[in-house]
Structures are given as C-alpha cells and as structure tokens.
Design a protein around this nucleic acid. Structure first.
Lengths: 336, 336
DNA sequence: TTTAGAAGTTGAAACGTTTCATTTTGGGAG
DNA sequence: CTCCCAAAATGAAACGTTTCAACTTCTAAA
C-alpha cells in the first residue's frame, strides 16, 4: 500500500546513476555492464515499472491504436481478436469504438478516438463521413481503411475483392442452373455494397443473362431488410430460383423468413451469401458462402499500420485479398 | 499541416488570461463571462483540443478501462458493444485484451493492461491467475470480475445465477420426460462450470433421480470437446435421452457431431444449452437455451466500475443476475 | 460609501519521462 | 606512460496539463 509508485528517479538514486542513464537502459541502448547490473537490481527491488503515460507525453506516441467499426459482429470480432495479438506483439494496445452505421455516431467516435491521441486508426466507415476522415488525416492521424473504401482519402487500405468474390459466386449459381437470381444489396453508400452489386451485374451480362431490376433489392444492411427482401422475392408471381445476399446479416434475415414460412434452403429456394460466419456450416443444409479471409485482413491491417508508424512511410498502400467460395447444400445439387 | 498542435498556453495567450483560468474552463468550473467568451473564441480559432495524455499524467487517471476476456466470441463481443457505449458516455475508453484461457497469456495481458495505467479492469478469468490478480488489486488497480468468480479477491463482481439457470433447465427437461440427462461440463477450474454442474446435480437429487457418473462429461470449454462428448453419449449402450451443454460452444460441437451423424436434435437427441447465441433460433429445430442477460451484465459492469472510480467506494459489491429460459424445438414436445 | 466575504484569477511548481549538449570514462595506439 | 577518441554518463530542460496559495475583483449588506 506504499502510495506513489517508484519513478525513474528513485531507480537512478538507488542505482547511483543519472536518470538519463536509467532512461537509456529502459530504451535498450548501451549501458556499462556495472551500471546495468545495479539498475536492474534497483528496478526489481523497487518494483519499478516505467510510466507509459509520461513517456507518451514526451514522445508524442501513445503506442495505442484505435479500431472503429460499425458493430462488433462475428466478422469484426474475429478481426479484433487477431488484431489484439498482432498489435500486442509489437507493443501496441487497441482502443475500440463503434458507430452502428450512423454518421453522427461515426463522427463522435472519430473525435473521441483522435482526442485519445492514438497513433493510428483502423477504420471501417461509410462515405457519409468522408470529409471528417479527411480532416483527421490532414491533422496527421494515420488511418488504415478496411472493409469499405473511401475514395480520394490519403490512407492505407486493406480491401477484399468483393467484385470477384461475388462474380465467382454468381458464376457458380448459373452453373447450377439458375438464371433468375435475386440479389439483396447492402447500403449502396458503401463501396462494399456497390462492388458486390457490380460483380453480380457484370457476371450476368457476361453470361448473357437478362437483368431484371425487380430482382435487385436495394436497401440497408439490416437483418430485417434481408427478411423483407426474401419475402418479397418469394411472393413474386415469377420468383427467382436463387438469392444472393450481400452479407451474412442479410442472409440471416432471409433464413429467418424461410424458416417461418417453412421454406427449405437448397430446396424451395437456393441461397448464397457473402461472408461465412461459423454457424453457416451448422445449418441443415449448410449455407453456401463467399468467405472473406478474415485473418489475413487483420494481419494486413496490423502490418500496414505498424510499418507505417515505425518506418515513416509516405505513399499510401493498398492490399487486396481474395475470397474463398464455400459450396454447401443451400445451393443444392447441380441441375443437369 | 501546422506542426505542433496548440496548447493550453497558446489559448491562454490568445484569450489574454492565465493558463490556470483556461484549465478551470476546460474542467467546467466557473469562469467570468467575459473570459469564457474570449477563451471559447481562442479555442475554436486555434482548433485547440486538450491533450489527454498530459492531463492523465498530472491527474493519474487515464480515463481508460481495460477489458480482459478469454476470447471475443459472440457473448463477449456483445458485452464489448454495450460496454463501449456506456463507457464512452462517461468519458472512458476501452482497451481490449484476451487470453484464450491460458494462464501465461492471462498474466501477460494483465501485465500489459496494468502497465497501460488503466483506471480499472473488467476481468473474465480463471483461478489459475488468482495470485496475480491479487497482486494487481493490492497494487491499487480496481478490478471488476465477471463471468467467473475468483474467491477471496477483493473486487466488485457481476455474476450470473448459473446454478439457478441450470437448475431451471434441468427441471424443465425432467418435466419433458427425461430422466437420463447427459451433462457436458466446461473446465471445472472455473466457478461458472462448477456452478452449472452443481445446478444439475442439485436438481437431479431434489427430484429423486439417479445420478449416473457416466453421464457427466468433464473436460474443457472447447467445441471439439462438445463434439467428442456427444459422440460418446450417443454411442453408449444406454444413452441419455437429452444432453445439457454448459456453454454454446460445447453445444455447437455437439450439434456439429449430430449433423455429421444425421441425428436430428429434438428427435434423436434432445438438447439444451447454456448461453443463447443468435443463431440458435435459426436452426431447425431451434435450440433450447438458458439465456444470459448479456446487456444487463455489461451495464452492471460499467455502472459498478464507474461508480467505484468516481465515488471512491470501499466495500466490494456483487451484482447477481438471473437467466432466462428459452424453450425451443430441440427439447421437443412434451412426452405423453 | 465602505467593507467583508465570496468568487474568480494568477502563475509557479509539479507530474515522470526523454532528449541532448556537455562532460567523463576507459581502452588502445604510439 | 601519454594521448586520443569513441562510447557512455550526466543533468537540466522540455513535454502540456492541473493544482494551489496568494492575490484581485465582484457583490451585497450595512
């Protein structure tokens, strides 16, 4: 209960050296052997632990990195986990924020993060806050964007090849005999949603299939939207034979509707989803999905950000990662 | 690009007052109207934003709180979300750490968290690190335990009534005609696992049912363990008619096995799980579960911790919350 | 108009590091 | 045994706040 924890000064006194020397030691620079020994002894005797806050004030680096995402869903939580490890290994800690897709909350969170004097920010945002992000970047906060791109922002990026991932899925759906394919989009303010839609449109065109505007449902990312869209599709006089969902949340809403309506995926309606949460493989049948390389995304985020911080890099870099197609029962057996 | 951001001193100069006055203003104390106006003008003109790090160094409060959990699964992510909001609303930020149930990682994370000079730590741990936790508490770090209790540690606690929750589930299972009930436990080093097991044993005894040691599977919390346990139970010559899983991870492993063996929950084997992740209600049939009050847990965590920090409370407090039983198809229809 | 007390202001000191110009040390070459 | 030089040590200044004792200004009662 000895109040006032020991400082570098106490250590210096006890080891009979100058504070500067202790500081050198703490920062791993060369020290005369005799001094090193005495300092080490003093440190363990006093139970000294360098005050990170004081250090941060002097060096202007807090060694903490912010993570701002819409919600901590399965996808972002997985990213969070990997990130914490990678950052910890490099002496950084992670501060978490979320914005629930709302511009106001996003700006507030951005403010809060910046005023914490974080060294960098990992950001999954929407275009609604483009200007605020630009302000922060200009204010010298390194930002690494992921999931959604914000055009024209000078930042590093870790993106997933949404377009190609969707294209591949659509191609497979067509191979399975589907021509009328419903598409449930996320919020088209987000590049992610736009790219997935483009992947669908491109592929349909390339394969010479007609594009029916009625089969393209454009709303937000919510589960209820997935639910409603699916109902609408299923109740059409000429319904699609398969539906592609732009995210697992949307697909979850869709499955919810089908379950309530006693429709069996892979039989009454064929289903493919972007994102591959754990539970897709537990459903009967399993849900066919475009799996994002979650771990690689998180690792790239850490790598890009840390290398920028430590090596004083200037040019913005972009990492693009490919998705993996997981064929499961919800796409059914190939129609001959 | 104006390097060196403005300080309180710049504001003071521009507003022609003393730094102390600006500080008073920033901390919401009374200020002469004329001064307030000039200070406000200066602040917005300069784009001044108080340096949280310098403040933290002086006040010895970082206004940041650590969260250390085993993994960021659906349960802990939900807690994280609510926490971030509650804390943010009170001016605190959240630093995240995880330990993967491993003592070594746990101690390292605890170290890392403490050396960040967090104001408090929210901790879901195992008894393996009891002494390390005691050391930190003695070192004056307020800790709020949740999920698992560590006996004898002087800390606040937010617990869930595991025993009663399990007891109720078992009672319901018996009402549904089950007498041979398999029990898949988590790691018995954790109070959570012990309490759930006790809830089962108590209830069986109270209802005058025999306890068959063969039906109690004691291992760790892993999904593979749930898988293996379920296989073992199903392959017994006299198998149980229902299985209770001590967590959704274990249940997930069990469902995985059943799916592979083409066993239908609620028909070939009846299933109840502690924890109620989103997807339980999407499966066919839905999985019957003991739902923890996730949101209330997170809110209590925030409330207890903040009130301790702001009001200088001494006696440790415990909040205990009740669970909710969600009856779904996996327990099947009542027999006869 | 005076005056006491409350309310507000002032500015130097302190928080615990790192930095850096200066000084000291030690070891090898001559 | 000197001398020189690189390596290491020194300690004061600085980082941007808050705090607090001393001082000034305001308000309202006499």
């Amino acid at each position: 209960m000895n109040h006032r924890s020991p400082t570098i000064l106490d250590v210096a006194k006890k080891a009979d050296v100058a504070v500067g020397t202790v500081s050198r030691f703490l920062n791993g620079r060369n020290i005369r052997k005799s001094n090193r020994d005495r300092i080490e002894a003093a440190i363990s005797e006093l139970g000294f632990r360098a005050n990170i806050v004081a250090r941060a004030m002097k060096t202007e680096r807090t060694k903490s990195i912010g993570l701002l995402v819409p919600v901590f869903d399965e996808f972002n939580s997985a990213i969070l986990s990997v990130l914490v490890d990678e950052l910890q290994a490099n002496g950084y800690s992670l501060l978490t924020f979320h914005h629930g897709h709302q511009a106001k909350a996003m700006i507030e969170a951005l403010e809060a993060a910046a005023s914490r004097r974080i060294d960098a920010l990992l950001l999954s945002a929407t275009e609604g806050i483009q200007t605020e992000v630009e302000r922060q970047v200009a204010g010298d906060l390194p930002i690494t964007l992921f999931n959604n791109d914000l055009p024209e922002v000078a930042a590093d990026r870790v993106l997933v090849n949404d377009r190609a991932g969707t294209a591949q899925a659509v191609r497979r759906m067509v191979e399975f005999g589907h021509e009328r394919i419903g598409f449930v989009s996320g919020d088209l303010f987000e590049s992610t949603a736009r790219n997935r839609l483009d992947g669908y449109l491109d592929t349909m065109r390339k394969l010479g299939l007609p594009i029916d505007e009625e089969l393209i449902w454009k709303q937000d990312w919510s589960r209820s939207n997935g639910h409603v869209a699916t109902r609408a599709f299923c109740e059409m006089t000429n319904p699609p034979t398969a539906i592609f969902y732009s995210s697992y949340i949307l697909a979850t809403g869709g499955l919810e509707f089908m379950r309530g309506a006693s429709l069996v995926p892979g039989k009454d309606m064929h289903v493919v989803s972007f994102d591959d949460p754990d539970y897709f493989s537990l459903l009967t049948p399993g849900i066919t999905a475009v799996a994002q390389p979650v771990k690689a995304v998180a690792q790239s985020l850490a790598e890009l950000t840390i290398s920028r911080l430590e090596n004083d890099i200037d040019a913005p870099r972009t990492v693009t990662l490919d998705c993996d197609f997981k064929l499961r029962g919800s796409l059914g057996l190939k129609k001959d």
